[in-house]
Design a protein around this nucleic acid. Structure first.
Lengths: 222, 222
DNA sequence: CTATGGTGTTACCGGCAGTAACGTTAGTCA
DNA sequence: TGACTAACGTTACTGCCGGTAACACCATAG
């Protein structure tokens, strides 16, 4: 927020075309990149261990370094968290779009995507909680990490839906609404599932898939 | 959470049968109830005006009172927020279950509930943001307000679904999964809609209703 | 008049995000 | 080799916030 120097995650590998914030301090030398990586890794470790309410001091300590260094690299707690989130979001998006590209019919592909998401959050519940249940970035019209993740997945999904169903441009809002709806459905159900593991993943995947492909009006078949 | 005295919202009018909680300071005298009300109203005003990151000091000041009074009444920031949330959740639940009880066929009733929810969040976006995008309560296994709202709506909805479709007990998890899925879908889509008003409410309601009742596999009809 | 319990206050604590100001290395140019 | 500079790192602070301790002000009861 306040800091004018919150460079938004110039991660080396992730293809970044949008978000060309001008104020990045240029030089990003090799040593600096290394530091940045190690800081991100330390932050990751701390978040995994202590949840998202980790303090900057704790993260700095974990990295064996003092706070101002962290601030020089990420400008802001929001900046750090955003960088951290970007990494995980990138990962999740990769898994999801792999599933999305699988050659199969619509409902089977739906199943694959849902399963990919649930598998991911099952593997790393702490990371998931960090991404979804934390909005440490104050909103300048925009919200926190949740929205970022939701937005990206939904955006990709809506493109997929529009393409798949061959929708006219006038139906783009419908595709978006559906995409957000589907993402929200899987997120909320996944959240519930993660807290009260009442049912094997398989089962939840089937239920969600049925809801999203056939609707709730017809009774379930099992 | 730390405070042992966070009484959970003994609102005056909401049907309360003496509240067995032992530690409650007993004599909730008339004057005290009045104070409590005025504090909640002040908090509500501040939250509406400044968003959910309102400080306790600000709320106390708005009520023309000092901080410790607030803490005596609610024990905790979490306690205050929970009390505040309960009030709004109660309200929203009322509107939703009214819609849910309407005599109509399944898809029409779905439409009514979705519309009721979207109407509510459209009327009071600030309150909605407070309820959904804030988890100020640290989680001892439990999460914040979002989960509370989601849980209550989903629980009610799943009972409705199970009754409506005459599901056997073995299908209760399915009903729950569907309920959470539907709630999440409407929440996420509503969130998106509230930020980018790309489309009239009517349209979003129709789209969501179609997704949830007929699934996404068949192309939309408009 | 005094004891007591609820209601209010001021003034503090500890912890956090964020920063200013000061060392310290390391590469550069004479 | 030795002075110069600039990035790198540190300690020690500010300001804010949640939460609390300790004290002050009535009322009513004996």
């Amino acid at each position: 927020m306040s800091s004018p120097d919150a460079q938004s995650t110039p991660e080396p590998e992730s293809a970044r075309s949008e978000l060309a914030l001008s104020s990045a301090p240029a030089a990003r030398s090799g040593r600096s990149q290394e530091r940045r990586r190690s800081l991100l890794e330390a932050a990751d470790r701390v978040v995994r261990r202590s949840g998202p309410e980790a303090s900057m001091a704790a993260i700095a300590a974990e990295a064996g370094i003092s706070k101002p260094v962290v601030y020089r690299h990420f400008g802001d707690k929001g900046g750090l968290y955003r960088a951290l989130a970007d990494r995980h979001i990138e990962d999740l998006m990769g898994r999801l779009s792999t599933a999305l590209r699988q050659p199969a019919d619509r409902s089977e592909r739906t199943r694959l995507v849902i399963d990919a998401y649930l598998a991911a959050i099952e593997e790393e519940p702490q990371v998931y909680r960090f991404l979804l249940h934390r909005a440490p970035i104050e909103e300048p019209t925009l919200t926190g990490l949740v929205a970022e993740l939701t937005r990206r997945v939904a955006e990709a999904l809506s493109a997929g839906i529009a393409g798949e169903l061959d929708l006219p441009p006038s139906a783009r809002p419908t595709a978006l609404a559906w995409a957000y709806g589907m993402v929200g459905a899987v997120q909320a159900a996944g959240d519930w599932w993660l807290q009260t593991r009442e049912v094997p993943r398989e089962r939840l995947v089937d239920d969600l898939c049925e809801l999203l492909t056939r609707g709730w009006v017809d009774p379930p078949r099992h």
